[in-house]
Amino acid sequence: MKYLCLIYTEEATFRQAMSTADEAAMMAEYGAFSGSIQKSGHFLAGHRLEPSAAAVTIRIRDGKTSTTDGPFAETKEALGGFYMIDARDLNEAIQVASRIPGAKVGSIEVRPIAFTTPPAGGG
């Protein structure tokens, strides 16, 4: 099963609170985590995202396209990055996701990828 792990953190407080040294340590920790899940075969994809200030939201209504600055939803915690992983089941995905360094400062949302066709042998 594939799962998307969405990493949410409080952008403003996060940046203010973090010294350069802390940030470097965090990046090193992410590097080690990515390396470990590549080795274990869980890793499918993963990226850090630019801050939500860099986001543009697009809507098409009645054939008219409009764009706005920033993310779709203004929340305290913003999407800061993601991993797409392969895991045996939801609990294994939770176990992997709980080792994402961001879990210690923000939160991780684990979402199963929907199958377009039912898995073989199911039902």
Partner: peptide
């Protein structure tokens, strides 16, 4: 069912007509 029998969280949820996140949290 998960640790001794090796069923996945999703299989257990299906068997007991429960949502997978509910089963997952019970296990966690």
């Amino acid at each position: 069912l998960r640790e001794v029998c090796g069923l996945t969280t999703e299989e257990i949820a299906r068997a007991f007509l429960t949502a997978p996140p509910t089963v997952a949290q019970r296990i966690v």
